[in-house]
């Protein structure tokens, strides 16, 4: 499934035009992205939570060459799926 399929779904179920449906779907992901870029978490009940985590700098290793490298401190995004979603899958 890609964004086009999601847009198609909104279009069929909501009765908005293709363009309107596309605008809504694009905006949803844009708003979520902006919020995460600001370090905010995004909680979608029934689906899951997107949380930005701070990672400290650490020493790592290139798995291919075994060479030691330093990994800088960074922010990463994690997704924790909702119990509802996990239940639905099993």
């Amino acid at each position: 499934m890609t964004k086009i399929d999601i847009i198609q779904n909104v279009y069929e179920k909501l009765g908005f035009s293709k363009k309107e449906s596309a605008d809504i779907v694009e905006s949803v992901f844009d708003i979520i992205k902006d919020s995460l870029a600001n370090g905010d978490k995004v909680k979608i009940s029934g689906f899951g939570n997107f949380v930005v985590k701070e990672k400290r700098a650490r020493r790592g290793r290139n798995p291919q060459t075994g060479q030691e490298i330093s990994i800088t401190a960074r922010r990463v995004l994690t997704f924790k799926s909702s119990q509802v979603l996990r239940k639905a899958l099993n």
């Binding site: 992205k33 995460l36 870029a37 600001n38 370090g39 899951g48 997107f50 930005v52 701070e54 800088t72 401190a73 960074r74 922010r75 990463v76 995004l77 994690t78 997704f79 799926s81 979603l85 996990r86 899958l89 099993n90």
Partner: peptide
């Protein structure tokens, strides 16, 4: 055994999240 959803962050979003923080 069970199924669990997994999310892999896209490149654009990964850079967005990391840039503003550092």
């Amino acid at each position: 055994k069970r199924k669990t959803p997994f999310f892999k962050t896209g490149k654009e979003l990964r850079l967005m999240v990391n840039k503003n923080g550092l």
